[in-house]
Simulated assay, not measured.
Amino acid sequence: MRLEPIAAPSLARRVLPIMAAILASFVIAALLAMVAGGDPLRVTGAILTGAFGSKFALLETLNRATPLIFTGLAVAVAFRAKLWNIGAEAQLYMGAVVAVLLGTGALALPAGVLLPLMGLCALLAGGLLLLVPALLKTRLGVDEVVTTLLFNFIFLLFVSYLLEGPLKDPMGMGWPKSARLIPEARLPRIVEGLRLHWGFGLALIAAVAVWIIDTRTTLGFEMRAVGQNAEAARFAGIPVTAVILKTALLSGGLAALAGFSEVAGLKGSLTLDLSPGFGYTGIVVAMLALLHPLGVVVAALFVAAISVGADAMSRAIGVPPYLAHILLATALLLVVLAILVTKFRLRRD
């Protein structure tokens, strides 16, 4: 038996295996819920109710999806060009640090000027942070998986130093957190009285913008060409090094916008637990979306719904919320297998 590539898989072959993989992951989660002593139907219903059962639940799901859209886009952009960015967590915190530096009163500007300036500076800072591993990869051949992963730990320690030193809030009663952003530096709420903010709208705009870049621009074509075969792209005259560096700037900037939106839209200040792993979860989101920018939005909503719904389910039924992590991990593994099924068929020699 051997695997034979499928030249032009049909729409059904591309979609049905992935839908079957997600359905199978829910079946496995239901079986685990039974082992944990819960009713599978009740567990599933509690997850759906907790994620979508009320206006508050729905908006909390959208809120949780916001940083995942940014980090998912960051990973999708980089992975499409075979730049293995595992450092979205560090880039997220870079965006948050920039938001605090500019938004706690350093600049006396109206909101219409300050907020775009903060977002732009966060984007540039995140891009420059990823540019270092990209340069090490292109100039010295250093594996970017190692460097970007190590940057996560290095930068988190740096943030810890900042929160215990230069950025520590003197009015914070000793807690390691930054001063709060001034009102002009806060993203407005989409719905008054609830936590959903315009960072979600910015995330949707970013997804559309990345899709346009990917499908309608020369840079998008070059990124896909480099990702498919860098040597062939170089032979065709594509500046591979320049494309990788541009990809790094875009990917790191998108991840940094997640930190900017969390601080300016939701938290109002920087703490060491700002992200519960949004940078790493962005890898899951990007893979579930098959690296498609618009698919990232759907995948982020799916992951956010599972996370928010599992918290509500745990409170309502008593089943451990770790079931959500198992569900996401199972879905990712099965989707990877489904991708293999969509691209290859078994042939008997």
Rank of each mutant, 00 (worst) to 15 (best):
A225L: 02
R216K: 15
A230D: 07
Q228F: 14
G259V: 02
S251M: 11
E231A: 15
A256K: 01
W211G: 00
V226G: 06
T217K: 14
L257N: 15
L249V: 12
V210F: 02
G252R: 13
V210A: 13
A258C: 11
I238D: 02
L257A: 09
T241Y: 00
V243R: 09
M223Q: 11
M223V: 09
I238L: 04
R224H: 05
N229A: 14
G220Y: 08
E222H: 08
R216W: 10
V208K: 07
P239R: 01
W211Q: 06
E231G: 12
K246D: 10
A230N: 01
A233W: 09
I244K: 05
G259N: 06
G237T: 08
F260P: 04
R234N: 11
G259P: 05
A232D: 02
A233K: 05
F235S: 03
V226T: 09
L257D: 05
G237Y: 11
S251L: 15
R234Q: 09
V208R: 04
A258F: 06
E222R: 09
L257V: 04
A230Y: 00
L250P: 11
I212R: 03
A233M: 06
A255W: 08
L219E: 08
A233T: 08
A233D: 13
T218N: 10
K246C: 13
M223T: 02
L219V: 13
L249G: 13
R224A: 10
D214P: 02
A232I: 03
T218Y: 07
I213E: 02
V243H: 08
L219K: 06
I244Y: 01
V243Q: 11
M223E: 02
L254S: 13
P239N: 04
G253W: 11
R224C: 03
A255V: 06
A248N: 07
T241W: 00
A256L: 04
I244E: 03
F235G: 01
P239I: 06
T215M: 07
